[in-house]
C-alpha cells in the first residue's frame, strides 16, 4: 500500500443504540482491504471502546482512521469534559459511567484499559472543560 487511506466519522452523542457504527464500518473496510482477522479485531475493539466513551462522557465526537503501510492509526477527538485523573481512568474497574449506562452492560471500567491492551501505542491528551484526544496505533 503506497498511499495512506483516511476515513473520518462523526460519532453521534445522542444515540446510544447506534454507537459503534463507525467501528463496524472500519471493520468492514479493513476486511475488504484484506487485513488479518486479529489486526481487524484489535482495531475494531479499541475504536469501539473509544466511540462508547465519547457517547457516554462527551456527547459524541470525531473519529479518524489512517491506514498506512506499516500501521493503522485511530484518532478520537471530543469536546467533552476531559479526564480529571488519567492514571485512575486507566485502572481496570474504575468507572464514572452513570447507572443507566451500566444497566446496558457498559461502565465496567474496561474501556481505556481495553484500548491500551489492543493497541501498540496509545497517547491521551486531555484538558478539563475542553475535551480529550486519544491517538492509538496498531502495527501491521
Amino acid at each position: 500500500m503506497e498511499e495512506q487511506l483516511r476515513f473520518r466519522y462523526e460519532v453521534d452523542g445522542d444515540n446510544f443504540t447506534s454507537a459503534g457504527e463507525a467501528s463496524v464500518s472500519v471493520k468492514k473496510k479493513l476486511r475488504q482491504l484484506g487485513f488479518a482477522p486479529e489486526i481487524i479485531r484489535r482495531v475494531s475493539i479499541a475504536m469501539y471502546e473509544g466511540e462508547i466513551n465519547m457517547v457516554i462522557h462527551a456527547h459524541g465526537g470525531r473519529a479518524d482512521v489512517v491506514v498506512s503501510k506499516d500501521k493503522i492509526e485511530i484518532t478520537l477527538d471530543d469536546d467533552g469534559p476531559g479526564i480529571p485523573n488519567v492514571e485512575l481512568a486507566m485502572q481496570e474497574g474504575f468507572s464514572t459511567a452513570p447507572d443507566n449506562i451500566r444497566s446496558l452492560g457498559f461502565g465496567a471500567g474496561m474501556g481505556l484499559p481495553n484500548m491500551k491492551r489492543y493497541t501498540d501505542t496509545m497517547k491521551i491528551q486531555t484538558e478539563l472543560g475542553k475535551g480529550t484526544k486519544i491517538i492509538m496505533t496498531v502495527n501491521i
Binding site: S23, V24, P37, S44, Y48
Partner: peptide, 15 residues
C-alpha cells in the same frame, strides 16, 4: 443474559 442492541455491535467487533 444481556439482550440490548449493543450486543450485536460487540459480537461483530469481537468477532
Amino acid at each position: 443474559i444481556m439482550t440490548n442492541l449493543n450486543i450485536c455491535a460487540v459480537a461483530s467487533l469481537a468477532d
